[in-house]
């Protein structure tokens, strides 16, 4: 380790990612300097699976690129596996597996060649790569597509290939930027299953997502980003408990009635959130509260009692829904 760390809150001797006041600003023609990432602190330990949750434009990808040593920070401190990306970019990148938001697969090459050539970029020998490429094709469940061109693959297959390719250098830190965006549910579950397996091997996972279920499934710990800042940090369960409560009653009264109904809901639940199309009541006992609403004669057109989720946390913290509906 090249850098001595001040003892962090999490107490890791050598954190995989360590950032203090990490900032990235861009000069733009129209609106001066824009802060994409605004002095954030991060600490990720070995073997953790860590999530960065936020809406589009929150600064997730910018943060990921700085961690991936392909974007220089404007100010603050950042070390990846003890190295400073400003000075040791190639060395850091040799440790990393990167799954970018947009596929960068080589469409002139076959599926197998994509993994093989990528391994060669790291300087790995042909002899070393041959068995490994085979293993990775198994892992990505693409063995029967090995000689196909990339363009013939489905979206889910391309993502799996990108992940397989990112593992060719046996990375200790895997960066996944929105790994399942644009995939159908079946393809997402298949991908999650692969990522679970990776977690078991001890690889540190850092992923960005704007899908709540994905964050809840894959991340032991996460930060919520909004407008370049970290607005909350913790395990999914902790965040939900702290910021949302136990259950949520979702009721719809139709656009006209919605505002009239709100005053009549007073006293039900701990907190009320009025959205354009529905009203959310945060509560400890959803069924009882729904009965109370009906008992007050406020018959909703639709009603749903559900467990509080990260979506609610996000809504609470930022005042916005995560996925534009």
């Amino acid at each position: 380790m090249d850098v001595a760390f001040p003892p962090g809150r999490h107490g890791w001797l050598c954190p995989v990612i360590w950032a203090r006041d990490l900032t990235k600003s861009y000069a733009t023609k129209t609106s001066g300097d824009v802060l994409a990432v605004d002095s954030i602190d991060l600490e990720v330990g070995p073997g953790e699976s860590f999530g960065i949750l936020g809406a589009n434009g929150a600064g997730k990808s910018t943060t990921m690129r700085m961690i991936g040593a392909t974007l220089q920070r404007t100010s603050g401190e950042l070390t990846i596996l003890g190295h400073d990306p400003q000075h040791e970019g190639p060395l850091i990148r040799a440790h990393l597996g990167v799954v970018p938001q947009q596929d960068t697969l080589d469409t002139d090459l076959t599926v197998r060649e994509n993994i093989y050539v990528y391994g060669r970029y790291f300087g790995l020998s042909r002899a070393e790569l041959q068995p490994r490429v085979d293993d990775l094709l198994d892992f990505a469940q693409l063995q029967d597509k090995r000689d196909a061109k990339v363009d013939s693959l489905s979206g889910g297959m391309k993502r799996r290939l990108t992940i397989a390719r990112s593992l060719v250098n046996e990375p200790s830190l895997l960066l996944l930027d929105e790994p399942t965006t644009g995939l159908d549910p079946q393809a997402r579950h298949l991908l999650w299953d692969r990522l679970f397996r990776l977690r078991e091997t001890g690889v540190t996972l850092v992923l960005t997502t704007h899908y709540m279920d994905e964050a809840e499934q894959l991340c032991e710990r996460l930060v919520v980003m909004d407008a370049g800042r970290i607005v909350a940090e913790g395990s999914p369960a902790h965040l939900i408990r702290t910021h949302a409560g136990r259950e949520v009653v979702e009721v719809r009264f139709g656009a006209q009635r919605s505002n009239e109904v709100v005053p009549h809901l007073a006293g039900i639940g701990q907190r009320t959130e009025v959205l354009p199309d529905r009203i959310l009541l945060y509560t400890e006992a959803g069924e009882a509260d729904l009965h109370e609403i009906v008992a007050r004669g406020l018959t909703p057109t639709t009603a749903l009692v559900r467990r509080a989720s990260l979506e609610d946390v996000f809504l609470r913290l930022t005042g916005r829904t995560l996925v534009d509906e």
Binding site: W12, L13, G47, E88, L91, A94, H95, F122, G123, N169
Partner: peptide
């Protein structure tokens, strides 16, 4: 975690040789 710092894969070893 000590183990993690010590294990270097081939890709890392190759990069390390050029690092200076």
């Amino acid at each position: 975690m000590i183990l993690q710092a010590l294990t270097s894969t081939t890709a890392v070893a190759i990069a390390q040789r050029r690092a200076g």
